[in-house]
Design a protein around this nucleic acid. Structure first.
Lengths: 196, 196
DNA sequence: ATTTATCGCTAACACACGTTAGTGCAAATT
DNA sequence: AATTTGCACTAACGTGTGTTAGCGATAAAT
C-alpha cells in the first residue's frame, strides 16, 4: 500500500495525468490501458479512480491544457505592434519550444484528440479551427503588406503546424542536434519559405 | 448471403483492404473494430477471415504497399542526372500527389504503423530510417553544390515529410483550393525555404 | 487522542474485442 | 449434370477492457 509520491505543488492527479501523457504518446490513447497506466504510476488500476473520473478525462485534461497555452500565447502575440512576419516567427518559435519541452502533452493533444467525446470533441475542433483562422489572418495581413509571398494562407498554416509536429522525429532520433539549433533551422527554412 | 461485390481486377481481399484504409484513417487502427469493417464491407465479421489472416495483416498490406511505392520512386529520381534541389522538388511533388490521390492508405501508413507487430514493425522502421537518410543525403549534396541553404539536412527532411502529412487538413477542409494550387503553394514555400 | 477523510487494495462486473469451428448454399469447374 | 471449390453464415470461445463496490489502513484535522 505505497501511496503515489508527489512533489511540491503537484497533486496525485497531476502525477497520473503526466504519466498518462507518456503512455498515450507511446501507444496511442486506445492502445494504452488503465492497467498499463496503473503500473507506470505504481499502483493498482482501480486505485486510479480515487483521483480521476475516467480515462477520457485524462485526455480532456491534456488536450485542453495544451490548447489553452497556445491560445493564450496567440492572444499575447496578436496584440503586439510588430510586422506580421515577426508575429509568425514568434508563434513558430513558441510552438517549437513547447514541442521540445512539453513533448508528451503537446504530441498527445495533437494526435489523439480524435478520441475525445462530445461535447469536448466539437469544442476542441472549434478551438482548433479558430486558432488556424487567426494564424491565416496574420499571414494574409503579411501578404497585403508585401512582407510575405502571395501564397494561400491556409496552406501556409497547415505547413507550419505540421512541420512543427515533425519535432517528434527529432525527439526519437539518436543523434540529436541541440534544441536551439533545431529551432534556428526550422525558422530558417519556414520563415525563409514565407518571406518575399 | 450477399457476396462482396468486386470490380474488374480487384479481389475481394482488395475491397476489404481498401475499406480498412478508410476506417483506420477515421478511427485509428486500434479503435476500428473488425465488426465495423465488416459492416462497411456489407458482411458479417467472421466472413472477413475467408479473405484475410488477421487484422494486422490489413495494416501490413497498407503500410508496405505505400512504402514500396515511395521507395521505387526514390530509386527512380535518385538516378536522374539533375540538380539536387530539383530532385527534392520532384520527390516533394510525388509525395503531395500521392497524399492527394491515395489519401487513406498514405495517411494510415504514416500514422498507424506503430501498431504493426515485429518483425514487420522493425522492418518498416528500418525502411523509414533509410528512406529519410537518402533524402538527407540528397539535401547534403545540394548544400555542397550551393543550391541549398546550409541547414541541418535531417531537420529539413523532417520538415518536408511532416508538412506533406498536413494535406490531411486540406482533405478535411470545407473550402478546398484545387489540388494543383495546393501543390504549387507547398512547393513555393518549401522549396523556396530550402533554396539559397 | 479521537475522529474524519484520503487512498490503495481485492474482487468482480459487463462488455467489446479478434478470432475459430462448423454448416450449407451458390458459383465455378469438369 | 455432377462435383468441387469459394464464401457467407451462426454460434461461440477466450481475453482484455474500463469501471464500480466495498474493505481496511494510514495520514490529516480536530
Amino acid at each position: 500500500m505505497a501511496r503515489i509520491k508527489t512533489e511540491k505543488n503537484t497533486s496525485r492527479k497531476d502525477v497520473i495525468v503526466s504519466k498518462a501523457a507518456v503512455l498515450f504518446r507511446e501507444k496511442g490513447f486506445k492502445a494504452a490501458s488503465m492497467r498499463d497506466l496503473a503500473e507506470s504510476v505504481g499502483v493498482e488500476a482501480a486505485s486510479l479512480y480515487n483521483h480521476i473520473k475516467s480515462k477520457t478525462e485524462l485526455l480532456h485534461e491534456l488536450c485542453f491544457s495544451v490548447a489553452n497555452r497556445f491560445l493564450q500565447k496567440l492572444d499575447e502575440i496578436e496584440s503586439e505592434p510588430i510586422p506580421a512576419i515577426q508575429k509568425i516567427e514568434k508563434i513558430l518559435r513558441f510552438h517549437i519550444v513547447e514541442m521540445v519541452n512539453n513533448y508528451e502533452e503537446v504530441y498527445v493533444s495533437d494526435r489523439e484528440w480524435k478520441h475525445l467525446n462530445d461535447p469536448y470533441l466539437s469544442n476542441f475542433q472549434n478551438q482548433r479551427r479558430i486558432y488556424r483562422k487567426r494564424l491565416a489572418a496574420i499571414i494574409e495581413s503579411g501578404i497585403k503588406n508585401k512582407e510575405i509571398k502571395p501564397i494561400d494562407a491556409p496552406t501556409a498554416v497547415l505547413i507550419l503546424l505540421h512541420a512543427i509536429s515533425g519535432i517528434e522525429s527529432w525527439h526519437r532520433s539518436k543523434q540529436k542536434i541541440t534544441a536551439a539549433a533545431l529551432e534556428e533551422n526550422m525558422v530558417t527554412i519556414l520563415v525563409g519559405g514565407l518571406t518575399i
